[in-house]
C-alpha cells in the first residue's frame, strides 16, 4: 500500500505542474490586459479555421505592411521590429515610425506607443510583419458573418499594449460596438 500514495502523488505533482503552467500563461495575458495601454487600429478581414483553436477571423492592420519612408531598410524575415503608433484621424492609431531591433530613438510623442513584432518578409520596399494579434477566435460558424460585415462596415480592434511592446487583443469593434465579448479578467 505504500506504493499507491507515492505513485498517485507523482500524478498529482505532474498535473499541478501542467495546470500551473497554463495558469502562468493566463496570468501573463491577463496582466497585459489589466495594465496595458489601449490602442485602436483599423482592420481588414478573411475567414479560415485552425485545427486546435477553431474558427477565427484573420486581421490585418496598417502596421502589418509598412511602405515607403516608414519601412525600415535591410529588414529580413525573423527580425524584431518596433512600430511606433500615434492617434490619427477618426480615433484610430496610425504608424508614425518603425525600427528594427529596438524602439525608434526619438522620444515618444503625446499618446504614442511602440508595438513589438516580427518581420515576416520584406519585398519591393515594403515590410510585412506579425504582432501576435492577427487572429480573432470566434464561436464555430460565426466567422463567416463577421467576414461579410467587414466588407462594408467599419471594424476596429482595441489592443492592450505593454511597456515592452507586446500587444494583446482586448476586443473587436463593429461600428464602435464590441463583437462577442466575454470578460476574461
Amino acid at each position: 500500500m505504500t506504493k499507491l500514495p507515492r505513485f498517485v502523488l507523482v500524478a498529482v505533482a505532474i498535473s499541478l505542474l501542467q495546470i500551473a503552467f497554463i495558469g502562468w500563461m493566463v496570468a501573463g495575458r491577463a496582466a497585459l490586459l489589466r495594465d496595458g495601454t489601449d490602442v485602436t487600429l483599423a482592420v481588414e478581414p478573411i475567414d479560415p479555421r485552425d485545427l486546435l483553436r477553431g474558427d477565427y477571423v484573420v486581421l490585418s492592420y496598417p502596421i502589418s505592411q509598412l511602405r515607403g519612408d516608414l519601412a525600415p531598410r535591410g529588414a529580413s524575415g525573423g527580425d524584431t521590429i518596433y512600430v511606433r503608433v500615434g492617434p490619427g484621424e477618426n480615433g484610430t492609431f496610425q504608424p508614425v515610425a518603425a525600427r528594427l531591433g529596438s524602439p525608434p530613438e526619438a522620444a515618444l510623442g503625446d499618446g504614442e506607443i511602440d508595438i513589438r513584432g516580427t518581420v515576416r518578409r520584406s519585398e519591393f520596399g515594403s515590410v510585412h510583419s506579425n504582432f501576435g494579434i492577427e487572429r480573432f477566435y470566434v464561436p464555430e460558424g460565426a466567422g463567416r458573418g463577421i467576414e461579410e460585415d467587414m466588407r462594408q462596415d467599419r471594424f476596429e480592434v482595441v489592443l492592450a499594449v505593454g511597456k515592452d511592446g507586446s500587444a494583446q487583443i482586448r476586443s473587436l469593434l463593429h461600428e464602435g460596438r464590441p463583437v462577442y465579448s466575454d470578460p476574461i479578467f
Partner: peptide, 26 residues
C-alpha cells in the same frame, strides 16, 4: 486523455487571448 487535456488547455488559452502566432511553439 490527460495529455490531451494539457494540449487542449494551451489551445484554449491561445483562443481566449487571440494569440495568432506560434502553433509550433504550442
Amino acid at each position: 486523455v490527460g495529455a490531451a487535456g494539457f494540449g487542449a488547455s494551451i489551445a484554449l488559452v491561445g483562443q481566449m487571448y487571440h494569440l495568432s502566432g506560434d502553433a509550433a511553439g504550442a
